[in-house]
Design a protein around this nucleic acid. Structure first.
Lengths: 185, 185
DNA sequence: ACTGTTCCAATACGTCTGTATCGTACTGAA
DNA sequence: TTCAGTACGATACAGACGTATTGGAACAGT
Protein backbone atom coordinates (compact mmCIF):
# COMPACT_ATOMS: atom_id res chain seq x y z
CA UNK A 1 0.00 0.00 0.00
CA UNK A 2 1.33 3.38 -1.04
CA UNK A 3 -0.16 5.21 1.95
CA UNK A 4 1.68 2.94 4.32
CA UNK A 5 4.95 3.39 2.43
CA UNK A 6 4.57 7.16 2.68
CA UNK A 7 3.69 6.94 6.37
CA UNK A 8 6.85 5.00 7.14
CA UNK A 9 8.92 7.56 5.27
CA UNK A 10 7.19 10.24 7.34
CA UNK A 11 8.28 8.50 10.55
CA UNK A 12 11.90 8.46 9.45
CA UNK A 13 11.84 12.10 8.42
CA UNK A 14 10.27 13.03 11.75
CA UNK A 15 13.01 11.22 13.65
CA UNK A 16 15.67 12.96 11.60
CA UNK A 17 14.17 16.46 11.52
CA UNK A 18 11.34 16.47 14.11
CA UNK A 19 7.75 17.28 13.26
CA UNK A 20 8.37 20.92 12.47
CA UNK A 21 10.97 19.93 9.91
CA UNK A 22 8.74 17.34 8.28
CA UNK A 23 7.69 18.84 4.95
CA UNK A 24 5.90 17.26 2.03
CA UNK A 25 9.01 17.41 -0.13
CA UNK A 26 11.20 15.76 2.49
CA UNK A 27 8.76 12.92 3.02
CA UNK A 28 8.38 12.44 -0.71
CA UNK A 29 12.15 12.31 -1.17
CA UNK A 30 12.53 9.86 1.71
CA UNK A 31 9.81 7.63 0.28
CA UNK A 32 11.32 7.92 -3.19
CA UNK A 33 8.15 9.26 -4.75
CA UNK A 34 7.02 12.56 -6.19
CA UNK A 35 5.11 15.24 -4.35
CA UNK A 36 2.30 14.85 -6.85
CA UNK A 37 1.84 11.21 -5.91
CA UNK A 38 1.62 12.11 -2.23
CA UNK A 39 -1.06 14.64 -3.05
CA UNK A 40 -2.95 11.92 -4.84
CA UNK A 41 -3.10 9.78 -1.72
CA UNK A 42 -3.35 12.56 0.87
CA UNK A 43 -5.30 15.67 -0.04
CA UNK A 44 -3.56 17.72 2.65
CA UNK A 45 -0.55 17.49 4.90
CA UNK A 46 -2.65 17.08 8.04
CA UNK A 47 -4.39 14.14 6.44
CA UNK A 48 -1.02 12.50 5.89
CA UNK A 49 0.14 13.24 9.44
CA UNK A 50 -3.01 11.78 10.95
CA UNK A 51 -2.71 8.67 8.81
CA UNK A 52 0.93 8.26 9.81
CA UNK A 53 -0.04 8.53 13.47
CA UNK A 54 -2.95 6.14 13.09
CA UNK A 55 -0.83 3.70 11.14
CA UNK A 56 1.76 3.68 13.87
CA UNK A 57 -0.60 3.11 16.77
CA UNK A 58 -2.08 0.29 14.75
CA UNK A 59 1.35 -1.26 14.29
CA UNK A 60 2.12 -1.02 18.00
CA UNK A 61 -1.17 -2.52 19.12
CA UNK A 62 -0.78 -5.34 16.62
CA UNK A 63 2.62 -6.11 18.10
CA UNK A 64 1.19 -6.03 21.61
CA UNK A 65 -1.37 -8.58 20.49
CA UNK A 66 1.44 -10.81 19.28
CA UNK A 67 3.14 -10.58 22.67
CA UNK A 68 -0.11 -11.53 24.38
CA UNK A 69 -0.31 -14.65 22.26
CA UNK A 70 3.21 -15.61 23.28
CA UNK A 71 2.55 -15.43 27.02
CA UNK A 72 2.82 -18.67 28.98
CA UNK A 73 -0.34 -17.77 30.88
CA UNK A 74 -2.28 -15.43 28.54
CA UNK A 75 -4.78 -14.58 31.26
CA UNK A 76 -2.34 -13.41 33.93
CA UNK A 77 -3.00 -9.67 34.39
CA UNK A 78 0.49 -8.74 35.51
CA UNK A 79 2.24 -10.38 32.58
CA UNK A 80 -0.28 -8.92 30.17
CA UNK A 81 0.21 -5.41 31.49
CA UNK A 82 3.94 -5.89 31.57
CA UNK A 83 3.98 -7.04 27.94
CA UNK A 84 1.83 -4.12 26.85
CA UNK A 85 3.85 -1.44 28.64
CA UNK A 86 7.24 -2.87 27.74
CA UNK A 87 6.23 -2.90 24.10
CA UNK A 88 5.91 0.90 24.17
CA UNK A 89 9.21 1.61 25.88
CA UNK A 90 12.12 2.59 23.57
CA UNK A 91 14.12 -0.56 24.27
CA UNK A 92 15.39 -1.15 20.74
CA UNK A 93 15.82 0.88 17.59
CA UNK A 94 12.38 0.13 16.15
CA UNK A 95 10.52 1.01 19.34
CA UNK A 96 12.75 4.01 19.78
CA UNK A 97 11.56 5.32 16.43
CA UNK A 98 7.94 4.74 17.40
CA UNK A 99 8.37 6.40 20.76
CA UNK A 100 10.03 9.37 19.12
CA UNK A 101 7.26 9.87 16.60
CA UNK A 102 4.68 9.38 19.35
CA UNK A 103 6.29 12.09 21.47
CA UNK A 104 6.40 14.43 18.49
CA UNK A 105 2.67 13.98 18.00
CA UNK A 106 2.03 14.27 21.72
CA UNK A 107 3.58 17.71 21.88
CA UNK A 108 1.73 18.60 18.70
CA UNK A 109 -1.45 17.57 20.50
CA UNK A 110 -0.82 20.28 23.06
CA UNK A 111 -1.58 22.81 20.31
CA UNK A 112 -3.66 21.08 17.67
CA UNK A 113 -6.96 19.76 18.97
CA UNK A 114 -7.34 17.21 16.19
CA UNK A 115 -4.23 15.39 17.34
CA UNK A 116 -5.20 15.92 20.97
CA UNK A 117 -8.55 14.28 20.38
CA UNK A 118 -6.95 11.32 18.67
CA UNK A 119 -4.36 10.79 21.38
CA UNK A 120 -6.91 11.32 24.13
CA UNK A 121 -8.95 8.48 22.71
CA UNK A 122 -5.93 6.20 22.72
CA UNK A 123 -5.05 7.25 26.23
CA UNK A 124 -8.57 6.57 27.43
CA UNK A 125 -8.52 3.09 25.97
CA UNK A 126 -5.15 2.34 27.52
CA UNK A 127 -6.32 3.68 30.86
CA UNK A 128 -9.52 1.64 30.80
CA UNK A 129 -7.56 -1.48 29.96
CA UNK A 130 -5.11 -0.91 32.80
CA UNK A 131 -7.92 -0.27 35.29
CA UNK A 132 -9.53 -3.55 34.30
CA UNK A 133 -6.34 -5.53 34.71
CA UNK A 134 -5.43 -3.88 38.02
CA UNK A 135 -8.88 -4.59 39.42
CA UNK A 136 -8.64 -8.15 38.21
CA UNK A 137 -5.23 -9.08 39.55
CA UNK A 138 -3.86 -6.23 41.59
CA UNK A 139 -3.73 -5.55 45.28
CA UNK A 140 -6.52 -3.36 46.68
CA UNK A 141 -5.92 0.21 45.56
CA UNK A 142 -7.37 3.09 43.59
CA UNK A 143 -7.09 1.39 40.22
CA UNK A 144 -7.91 4.54 38.23
CA UNK A 145 -5.19 6.54 39.91
CA UNK A 146 -2.67 3.73 39.66
CA UNK A 147 -3.41 3.41 35.96
CA UNK A 148 -2.70 7.10 35.49
CA UNK A 149 0.54 6.71 37.40
CA UNK A 150 1.59 3.81 35.21
CA UNK A 151 0.89 5.73 32.03
CA UNK A 152 2.64 8.85 33.27
CA UNK A 153 5.59 6.75 34.34
CA UNK A 154 5.89 5.13 30.93
CA UNK A 155 5.54 8.46 29.13
CA UNK A 156 7.96 10.21 31.45
CA UNK A 157 10.59 7.54 31.18
CA UNK A 158 10.13 7.30 27.43
CA UNK A 159 10.83 11.01 27.25
CA UNK A 160 13.79 10.64 29.57
CA UNK A 161 15.32 7.86 27.52
CA UNK A 162 14.81 9.72 24.25
CA UNK A 163 16.37 12.85 25.68
CA UNK A 164 19.36 10.86 26.87
CA UNK A 165 18.63 11.56 30.53
CA UNK A 166 18.46 7.95 31.59
CA UNK A 167 18.88 4.50 30.08
CA UNK A 168 16.21 2.20 28.76
CA UNK A 169 17.20 -0.33 31.41
CA UNK A 170 16.49 2.16 34.18
CA UNK A 171 13.09 2.84 32.65
CA UNK A 172 12.33 -0.86 32.42
CA UNK A 173 13.43 -1.45 36.01
CA UNK A 174 11.24 1.37 37.29
CA UNK A 175 8.18 0.15 35.43
CA UNK A 176 8.69 -3.39 36.65
CA UNK A 177 9.14 -2.17 40.21
CA UNK A 178 5.82 -0.39 39.93
CA UNK A 179 4.18 -3.53 38.57
CA UNK A 180 5.58 -5.55 41.46
CA UNK A 181 4.10 -3.04 43.87
CA UNK A 182 0.74 -3.27 42.15
CA UNK A 183 0.45 -6.97 41.45
CA UNK A 184 2.96 -8.48 43.85
CA UNK A 185 6.33 -9.97 42.86
CA UNK B 1 14.93 45.01 29.57
CA UNK B 2 13.98 44.63 25.95
CA UNK B 3 15.30 41.08 25.66
CA UNK B 4 13.08 39.94 28.48
CA UNK B 5 10.05 41.66 26.95
CA UNK B 6 10.70 39.85 23.67
CA UNK B 7 11.20 36.54 25.47
CA UNK B 8 7.85 36.79 27.21
CA UNK B 9 6.16 37.56 23.90
CA UNK B 10 7.88 34.50 22.49
CA UNK B 11 6.36 32.32 25.24
CA UNK B 12 2.87 33.54 24.46
CA UNK B 13 3.30 33.00 20.75
CA UNK B 14 4.63 29.50 21.39
CA UNK B 15 1.60 28.64 23.50
CA UNK B 16 -0.75 29.96 20.85
CA UNK B 17 0.98 28.54 17.78
CA UNK B 18 3.57 26.02 19.03
CA UNK B 19 7.27 26.29 18.31
CA UNK B 20 6.97 25.62 14.60
CA UNK B 21 4.55 28.50 14.32
CA UNK B 22 6.77 30.85 16.29
CA UNK B 23 8.26 33.17 13.70
CA UNK B 24 10.20 36.38 14.13
CA UNK B 25 7.33 38.40 12.73
CA UNK B 26 4.77 36.88 15.10
CA UNK B 27 6.95 37.42 18.15
CA UNK B 28 7.64 40.99 17.11
CA UNK B 29 3.92 41.66 16.63
CA UNK B 30 3.09 40.09 19.99
CA UNK B 31 5.77 42.16 21.71
CA UNK B 32 4.61 45.26 19.89
CA UNK B 33 8.01 45.96 18.34
CA UNK B 34 9.51 45.82 14.88
CA UNK B 35 11.42 42.89 13.43
CA UNK B 36 14.41 45.18 13.04
CA UNK B 37 14.52 45.83 16.77
CA UNK B 38 14.47 42.12 17.50
CA UNK B 39 17.39 41.67 15.15
CA UNK B 40 19.23 44.31 17.07
CA UNK B 41 18.91 42.41 20.33
CA UNK B 42 19.13 38.89 18.90
CA UNK B 43 21.38 38.35 15.92
CA UNK B 44 19.59 35.13 14.97
CA UNK B 45 16.37 33.34 15.79
CA UNK B 46 18.15 30.54 17.65
CA UNK B 47 19.79 33.14 19.86
CA UNK B 48 16.36 34.44 20.77
CA UNK B 49 14.95 30.97 21.42
CA UNK B 50 17.84 30.03 23.69
CA UNK B 51 17.46 33.27 25.62
CA UNK B 52 13.72 32.69 25.98
CA UNK B 53 14.36 29.18 27.30
CA UNK B 54 17.08 30.35 29.65
CA UNK B 55 14.95 33.22 30.85
CA UNK B 56 12.10 30.86 31.64
CA UNK B 57 14.13 28.33 33.59
CA UNK B 58 15.55 31.24 35.53
CA UNK B 59 12.06 32.47 36.34
CA UNK B 60 10.97 29.03 37.51
CA UNK B 61 13.99 28.47 39.73
CA UNK B 62 13.61 31.92 41.22
CA UNK B 63 10.02 31.08 42.10
CA UNK B 64 11.10 27.80 43.63
CA UNK B 65 13.53 29.76 45.78
CA UNK B 66 10.67 31.95 46.96
CA UNK B 67 8.65 28.89 47.95
CA UNK B 68 11.62 27.57 49.89
CA UNK B 69 11.77 30.80 51.84
CA UNK B 70 8.09 30.49 52.71
CA UNK B 71 8.41 27.00 54.18
CA UNK B 72 7.72 26.64 57.89
CA UNK B 73 10.72 24.37 58.21
CA UNK B 74 13.05 25.39 55.35
CA UNK B 75 15.33 22.44 55.98
CA UNK B 76 12.73 19.67 55.78
CA UNK B 77 13.64 17.60 52.70
CA UNK B 78 10.14 16.42 51.95
CA UNK B 79 8.57 19.86 51.96
CA UNK B 80 11.43 21.24 49.93
CA UNK B 81 11.10 18.56 47.27
CA UNK B 82 7.35 18.93 47.29
CA UNK B 83 7.61 22.68 46.79
CA UNK B 84 10.09 22.28 43.96
CA UNK B 85 8.13 19.63 42.09
CA UNK B 86 4.74 21.26 42.57
CA UNK B 87 6.14 24.48 41.20
CA UNK B 88 6.78 22.78 37.86
CA UNK B 89 3.39 21.12 37.51
CA UNK B 90 0.83 22.95 35.33
CA UNK B 91 -1.49 23.75 38.23
CA UNK B 92 -2.46 27.27 37.17
CA UNK B 93 -2.40 29.29 33.99
CA UNK B 94 1.09 30.73 34.51
CA UNK B 95 2.70 27.38 35.22
CA UNK B 96 0.71 25.84 32.42
CA UNK B 97 2.31 28.31 30.05
CA UNK B 98 5.75 27.46 31.35
CA UNK B 99 5.18 23.74 31.10
CA UNK B 100 3.89 24.20 27.60
CA UNK B 101 6.90 26.17 26.45
CA UNK B 102 9.17 23.65 28.14
CA UNK B 103 7.57 20.82 26.18
CA UNK B 104 7.96 22.78 22.96
CA UNK B 105 11.68 23.14 23.61
CA UNK B 106 11.89 19.49 24.53
CA UNK B 107 10.86 18.47 21.04
CA UNK B 108 13.28 20.96 19.60
CA UNK B 109 15.98 19.30 21.68
CA UNK B 110 15.31 16.06 19.85
CA UNK B 111 16.88 17.57 16.74
CA UNK B 112 19.03 20.46 17.88
CA UNK B 113 21.88 19.45 20.16
CA UNK B 114 22.23 22.95 21.61
CA UNK B 115 18.79 22.71 23.17
CA UNK B 116 19.35 19.08 24.10
CA UNK B 117 22.54 19.95 25.98
CA UNK B 118 20.81 22.76 27.81
CA UNK B 119 17.89 20.63 28.91
CA UNK B 120 20.11 17.70 29.83
CA UNK B 121 22.09 19.98 32.13
CA UNK B 122 18.90 21.10 33.84
CA UNK B 123 17.75 17.53 34.24
CA UNK B 124 21.08 16.49 35.71
CA UNK B 125 20.95 19.29 38.25
CA UNK B 126 17.38 18.41 39.20
CA UNK B 127 18.31 14.77 39.56
CA UNK B 128 21.34 15.52 41.72
CA UNK B 129 19.24 17.75 43.95
CA UNK B 130 16.57 15.09 44.39
CA UNK B 131 19.16 12.41 45.19
CA UNK B 132 20.61 14.65 47.87
CA UNK B 133 17.26 15.32 49.49
CA UNK B 134 16.14 11.69 49.34
CA UNK B 135 19.35 10.54 50.96
CA UNK B 136 18.96 13.20 53.60
CA UNK B 137 15.36 12.57 54.62
CA UNK B 138 13.99 9.60 52.79
CA UNK B 139 13.54 6.02 53.79
CA UNK B 140 16.33 3.64 52.76
CA UNK B 141 16.13 3.11 49.01
CA UNK B 142 18.00 3.52 45.74
CA UNK B 143 17.96 7.30 45.76
CA UNK B 144 19.21 7.65 42.19
CA UNK B 145 16.48 5.43 40.84
CA UNK B 146 13.79 7.04 42.95
CA UNK B 147 14.87 10.45 41.72
CA UNK B 148 14.49 9.26 38.15
CA UNK B 149 11.05 7.94 38.98
CA UNK B 150 10.02 11.26 40.48
CA UNK B 151 11.22 13.21 37.46
CA UNK B 152 9.58 10.80 35.04
CA UNK B 153 6.36 11.03 37.02
CA UNK B 154 6.37 14.83 36.94
CA UNK B 155 7.21 14.93 33.23
CA UNK B 156 4.69 12.26 32.33
CA UNK B 157 1.89 13.89 34.28
CA UNK B 158 2.79 17.32 32.94
CA UNK B 159 2.45 15.99 29.43
CA UNK B 160 -0.76 14.22 30.34
CA UNK B 161 -2.30 17.35 31.80
CA UNK B 162 -1.29 19.47 28.80
CA UNK B 163 -2.73 16.94 26.38
CA UNK B 164 -5.96 16.87 28.35
CA UNK B 165 -5.58 13.25 29.39
CA UNK B 166 -5.86 13.85 33.11
CA UNK B 167 -6.38 16.71 35.51
CA UNK B 168 -3.78 18.73 37.35
CA UNK B 169 -5.30 17.52 40.64
CA UNK B 170 -4.71 13.92 39.68
CA UNK B 171 -1.11 14.76 38.85
CA UNK B 172 -0.63 16.53 42.14
CA UNK B 173 -2.18 13.65 44.09
CA UNK B 174 0.07 11.11 42.40
CA UNK B 175 3.22 13.12 43.05
CA UNK B 176 2.28 13.62 46.68
CA UNK B 177 1.53 9.91 47.08
CA UNK B 178 5.00 9.15 45.75
CA UNK B 179 6.53 11.65 48.16
CA UNK B 180 4.66 10.03 51.06
CA UNK B 181 6.06 6.67 50.00
CA UNK B 182 9.56 8.09 49.86
CA UNK B 183 9.65 10.30 52.91
CA UNK B 184 6.80 8.98 55.01
CA UNK B 185 3.46 10.74 55.53
C1' DA C 1 30.42 71.23 15.77
C1' DC C 2 32.06 67.02 14.24
C1' DT C 3 32.09 62.09 14.60
C1' DG C 4 31.23 57.52 15.96
C1' DT C 5 28.10 54.41 18.16
C1' DT C 6 23.79 52.68 19.59
C1' DC C 7 19.03 51.89 18.63
C1' DC C 8 15.64 51.01 15.68
C1' DA C 9 12.33 50.95 11.28
C1' DA C 10 11.63 49.62 6.54
C1' DT C 11 12.36 46.86 3.09
C1' DA C 12 14.50 43.69 -0.08
C1' DC C 13 16.23 38.96 -1.06
C1' DG C 14 16.43 34.19 -1.65
C1' DT C 15 14.55 30.00 0.09
C1' DC C 16 11.10 26.95 1.60
C1' DT C 17 6.42 25.92 2.46
C1' DG C 18 1.57 23.70 1.21
C1' DT C 19 -1.26 23.28 -2.40
C1' DA C 20 -3.47 24.09 -7.09
C1' DT C 21 -3.16 23.11 -11.76
C1' DC C 22 -2.05 20.87 -15.94
C1' DG C 23 -0.51 17.07 -18.68
C1' DT C 24 0.04 12.25 -19.50
C1' DA C 25 0.24 7.54 -19.21
C1' DC C 26 -2.54 3.35 -18.09
C1' DT C 27 -6.79 0.56 -17.08
C1' DG C 28 -11.09 -1.56 -17.58
C1' DA C 29 -15.90 -1.18 -19.21
C1' DA C 30 -19.08 -0.23 -23.03
C1' DT D 1 -12.49 1.98 -30.44
C1' DT D 2 -14.08 5.11 -27.35
C1' DC D 3 -14.40 6.95 -23.02
C1' DA D 4 -14.28 7.68 -18.11
C1' DG D 5 -11.58 7.12 -14.27
C1' DT D 6 -7.36 6.34 -11.76
C1' DA D 7 -2.56 7.22 -10.88
C1' DC D 8 0.74 9.71 -11.16
C1' DG D 9 4.87 13.61 -12.65
C1' DA D 10 6.01 18.33 -13.39
C1' DT D 11 5.47 22.77 -12.53
C1' DA D 12 3.41 27.03 -10.98
C1' DC D 13 1.88 30.04 -7.34
C1' DA D 14 1.18 32.79 -3.37
C1' DG D 15 2.66 33.33 0.96
C1' DA D 16 5.73 32.86 5.03
C1' DC D 17 10.13 32.33 6.55
C1' DG D 18 15.04 34.05 8.41
C1' DT D 19 18.10 37.41 7.59
C1' DA D 20 20.92 41.02 5.10
C1' DT D 21 20.88 45.73 3.88
C1' DT D 22 19.94 50.42 4.14
C1' DG D 23 18.99 54.61 6.34
C1' DG D 24 17.79 57.65 9.85
C1' DA D 25 17.22 59.39 14.52
C1' DA D 26 19.26 59.90 19.21
C1' DC D 27 23.07 60.37 21.87
C1' DA D 28 28.06 60.32 23.62
C1' DG D 29 32.68 61.64 23.33
C1' DT D 30 36.07 64.77 21.69
Amino acid sequence: MRRRQIAEAMWRVTVARSLEGTSMRHVAAEAGVSVGMMQHYFRTKDEMLLFALDSMTEQVSRRIGERFAELADPDDPKHQVRAALVETLPLDEERRLEAFVGCAFLTRAAVDTRFADYLRDGHRQGHAYLVEQINRGGRPCDAAEEAHVLLALVNGFTLGVLAGQCTAQQALAAVEARLDALFGP
